[in-house]
Amino acid sequence: MGQELKGTGISQLTNSELNKVDAAALDPQVRKFVDFYLQTRVPLRAYIYGFLKNSEAIEDCIQETCMLVWNKQQEGWTLDEYQKFSYTTARFKALSWLKKHQPKKHVQLSPAMMEKLADRTLQVEPDHRISILNDCLDRLSPEQRNILDARYEAADSQALQLLANSLSRKVDSLYKQLERLRTILRDCVRKELPYQ
């Protein structure tokens, strides 16, 4: 089974486990759509990250993209076709969000660089490393894990600041530690990948 969702006793289905769900119970078109959606989430999120940094806005963008793709999908689409349509849709959704919300301009890359970065994320070799990443996460100390949880799991965007307050540390030092943790995890995944 997949990784347990924290404290729920419910296991998160991986794509391969989704394939084991009773095929007869699902309409093939729905099944294919959900399969493609799950396979596309990571590259789509990375792509949108070229434009947006706000986590909620990114999730909204993924949802809206999914909705539009669902409505426009063509029977017989391949994963590649599904993804191309998703990226094009997501780009417009992200640009529209930026236009509407106009976040602080000084923190954003230039529009040309945003496009360049978003396109470059699509060229990152997918190596299906989520399960390895989960193993690497399990090797972290509770203190390290708390920092990652505050950044990635907490609903409160101020969670890292609150953690810094509770630890009597500066938030900048936690961000620095977060940067190191990402590098540690990235190195861990690289070492564990079978073809490295």
Binding site: Q3, R41, V42, P43, R45, A46, Y49, G50, S55, L117, T121, V124, R129, I130, L133, N134, L137, L148, Y152, R182, L185, R186, V189
Partner: peptide, 10 residues
């Protein structure tokens, strides 16, 4: 950025 997306997804 891609790794960050994976981490978030995970």
């Amino acid at each position: 950025v891609h790794f960050h997306a994976e981490l978030e997804e995970s």
